[in-house]
C-alpha cells in the first residue's frame, strides 16, 4: 500500500474513539443523557424567549473552551494505546514514528472539527429558537447571530492544531523517560500561548452587549501561522520521544 494511503488508513483507525477497557455505558443510557440535556436547554431557551431575553450572542464565548477538548482528544488517543494494551502492536508497525504520531494528531484535529460543527449547530438552533419564541426572529438577527458564531468558532478552531499537537506530545511524554519534564511542558505551553495570543484585544473585541467580535488582522494571521509551525515542531518532538525515549 502506498505510504500516503497507509497514512490516511492510520488516521481512520485513530479517528475511532476508543474507550479504556472497562464496562461501557450502554448506548441507551448515553442517548437518555443527551436527550435530558437537550430537554433542559430547550426549557431554558423557551423560558428565556418568553421572558424577552433573546439576544444570545455572548453564548458564542463557549467556543474558546473547545480547544481544550482537542487537547483531551489528542492525549486520549495516545494514552489509550498503553492503557488498552495495544501499544506493542501500534509501535511495531513498519512505519516511521513521525507518521504514527502525525496520524494521531490529524485524527484529533478532525474529531475537533466535528465537535465544533456539532456545537455550532446546537448553539445556532437554541439561539434562533429563543429568538423565535420571543418573536424577534428576522433575517437580520439570524444572519448576524450565525455569522458571529462562525467567526468566533473559526478563530477558536485555528488554535486547535497547536493544542492537539501539545496533547500528542503530552501523551508521549507520559510514557517516556522524559516524564519528569511534564510540569515543565505546561509552563512552556502557557508561556507560548501567552506569547502567541497575548494581543487578543487587537483582533477580538467585546461589544457592549457582551457579544464577541472578531476582526482579521496581520497580527492574528501571523500568530496563527506561528502556532501551526510550532504544532509541526511538537509532532516531531512526539516522534522523537516515541523513537528514542520510551520507558518500556
Amino acid at each position: 500500500m502506498p505510504a500516503q494511503s497507509t497514512f490516511w488508513a492510520l488516521v481512520r483507525h485513530d479517528f475511532k474513539h476508543r474507550r479504556r477497557r472497562r464496562t461501557p455505558i450502554p448506548r441507551a443510557w448515553r442517548l437518555a443523557y443527551v436527550a435530558a440535556v437537550a430537554l433542559v436547554l430547550l426549557a431554558v431557551a423557551t423560558y428565556d424567549g418568553r421572558g424577552g431575553h433573546y439576544r444570545l450572542g455572548p453564548v458564542w464565548w463557549v467556543a474558546f473552551g473547545l480547544p481544550f477538548t482537542s487537547f483531551g482528544l489528542a492525549v486520549n488517543t495516545m494514552v489509550t494505546e498503553w492503557k488498552n494494551g495495544t501499544v506493542g502492536w501500534w509501535l511495531t508497525l513498519p512505519y516511521p514514528r513521525l507518521h504514527l504520531s502525525a496520524a494521531k494528531f490529524v485524527a484529533a484535529v478532525v474529531r475537533s472539527v466535528f465537535i465544533y460543527a456539532l456545537t455550532y449547530m446546537a448553539m445556532a438552533f437554541f439561539g434562533l429558537y429563543t429568538a423565535l419564541v420571543s418573536g424577534h426572529l428576522d433575517l437580520g438577527y439570524t444572519a448576524g447571530y450565525l455569522l458571529t458564531g462562525l467567526k468566533v468558532m473559526g478563530l477558536s478552531l485555528t488554535v486547535c492544531p497547536f493544542v492537539a499537537a501539545f496533547g500528542v506530545v503530552y501523551g508521549a511524554l507520559a510514557e517516556s523517560r522524559a516524564r519528569p519534564a511534564m510540569p515543565l511542558t505546561w509552563i512552556l505551553f502557557s508561556g507560548l500561548w501567552w506569547l502567541i495570543f497575548s494581543q487578543d484585544d487587537r483582533y477580538l473585541q467585546v461589544h457592549s452587549d457582551g457579544v464577541p467580535h472578531v476582526s482579521l488582522s496581520p497580527t492574528l494571521c501571523i500568530s496563527i501561522a506561528c502556532s501551526w509551525v510550532l504544532a509541526y515542531g511538537l509532532i516531531r518532538l512526539a516522534a522523537y520521544l516515541l523513537d528514542e525515549q520510551l520507558a518500556m
Binding site: K16, R21, N84, G85, G88, T92
Partner: peptide, 16 residues
C-alpha cells in the same frame, strides 16, 4: 519491522 511478526507480551487487541 516489515520482516517481523511480533506478538507483544501481555498484549490485547482493539476491543471494538
Amino acid at each position: 519491522n516489515r520482516d517481523i511478526a511480533y506478538l507483544p507480551d501481555r498484549a490485547r487487541w482493539y476491543s471494538d
